[in-house]
Design a binder for these strands. Sequence first.
DNA 1: CTTTATCCTTCAATTTCAATAGGAAAATAT
DNA 2: ATATTTTCCTATTGAAATTGAAGGATAAAG
Lengths: 134, 134
Amino acid sequence: MLAKKTQYALKALTYMAEQHSAGPFLIADIGSKKKIPIKFLESILLELKKAGILNSKKGKGGGYFFNQDPSTIQLATIMRLIEGPIALLPCVSLHFYKKCNDCNEKKCGLNKIMKEVRDNTLSILENRTVQDLV
Amino acid sequence: MLAKKTQYALKALTYMAEQHSAGPFLIADIGSKKKIPIKFLESILLELKKAGILNSKKGKGGGYFFNQDPSTIQLATIMRLIEGPIALLPCVSLHFYKKCNDCNEKKCGLNKIMKEVRDNTLSILENRTVQDLV
DNA sequence: CTTTATCCTTCAATTTCAATAGGAAAATAT
DNA sequence: ATATTTTCCTATTGAAATTGAAGGATAAAG
Ligand code: FES
Ligand code: FES
């Protein structure tokens, strides 16, 4: 199960992508519509901004908006950014790999099956974008 | 990423299934071979026993052994038992479902995509057994 | 120069995770 | 009987992560 933080991030992005306008969107609005604690959401959006996904404007008329077209933002990118690894085991992770010191990857059946799961999952999450959420 | 506990459970079962003998296997042996802290492993195996996956015998010559044929134990069963939900969101979980109070499932794109991920994952984890790990 | 809204740091509560301690109970061997 | 082996059970610990709040700094607009 994804951490609440990741769920919130995905929900917030979904909300933003669903709107007809391009923003900017207020933290407070997103939070109240998607039932996300404001202060928690604040830190999440800031993180997405620092990663280049979002941009923001301060002051009246300000808020958050997309820094890239939603159709270019893979869901896998968001999840790796907020959640970390997508794979179920360290030894099958592409971006967060860590060797198993207690078994031989070449012969390990667990490794093989978990790689299969990973490839299946990535084939979805790397081919769907924030735009596909609307 | 799976919790360490779940990883340990899967590794222990893999180890047991890999052996030519049917056991019983000592906690201490499994633990030292798969680099799992003994006391932690102890509680994991006990949990698997209480769930009917394993059985055990005390005293000299005792240890843990399979209570059902490894080819009948789905990996999904182990993971749900130790880890909990396999799905990425509560609203797409089959065994641990919880409604989203902030969006309409029928129209929710996030829900739809995460269901796709779930189905893909389950098609693997429900069709592979502990026997397939060897 | 007031209002609005993000930015940033710090912190606190809670929960979860990982692991250990220590003994009780059961089975076997001597 | 008694000692040894091994699982069973409860309790507890310590560390880390998660979730979230407080409060002020900064920037922009009116
Ligand atoms: S190589 Fe990682 S579980 Fe075997
Ligand atoms: S219904 Fe669960 S995320 Fe939309």
